[in-house]
Design a protein around this nucleic acid. Structure first.
Lengths: 114, 114
DNA sequence: GCAAAGTACATTGCATTGCTATGTACTATG
DNA sequence: CATAGTACATAGCAATGCAATGTACTTTGC
């Protein structure tokens, strides 16, 4: 088995939890809806978020009170469900940023030593 | 529910896949065994690796050919199973480093914009 | 001398989560 | 008028971190 096949299994695992972080980071800049989130995240991070990943994830964030949602209908187009980050979401996001920074520094320490 | 409780659920998910990366990074510096890996990783990264996480993980790495293992007995002490990274492991590790770097830059892009 | 803590490996079962596949419904384009 | 795009949703699979538990040997402190 080549390393490409191993990476195919590793990358999704690597993303676990990370996507939650990324979504909250994006929502910190302003409200958005599922489809737009997927597009923008793909543009900015090269990460393609599958819909079967995104919508359950947004429901979890809502269930935990990190975001709130609101349907918005317009004259044209399909109705959109807009998500907005809450104060609990911002508080949690700050802690995630710390964890991310600490972990990144730890990884750098390990890379340096080689 | 407070953000601390949410973090308790998030951190393990955040680590998925990351531990595999961290173990390989450490093994790049030289062979080691389970208990030592757990101690050293805790020292360098502040990450406490549970034994129920570590030993299955090492078996997966071995099954996929990223490491090889060898029992070593000494005059004193419990026998140790030493793990050594393979060329496939090094090849895979290089790709993981790229993924990590790319993702870190993406996160930074998102943080910058806020 | 002996209990407690440390060293060292291992397994079972649970909970969580990313992803594929599939479905619905409306809209814009060629 | 068919194709591609927009937009949300769910069911089921596979992978993995972790608590709990077990075994066995060794060192340390009282």
């Amino acid at each position: 088995m080549g390393s490409d096949k191993i990476m195919e299994r590793w990358v999704p695992q690597f993303r676990k939890g990370l996507l939650e972080f990324i979504i909250l980071l994006r929502l910190q800049q302003g409200h958005s809806y599922g489809y737009e989130l997927a597009m923008q995240i793909k543009d900015v991070t090269m990460i393609e978020v599958a819909e079967g990943t995104l919508y359950p994830l947004l429901n979890r964030l809502k269930r935990d009170g990190l975001v709130v949602s609101e349907w918005q209908t317009a004259d044209v187009g399909t109705p959109r469900k807009y998500y907005q980050i809450t104060s609990l979401g911002l508080e949690t996001l700050a802690k995630m940023k710390n964890t991310w920074t600490e972990t990144h520094n730890s990884i750098l320490n390990l890379v340096m030593q080689s």
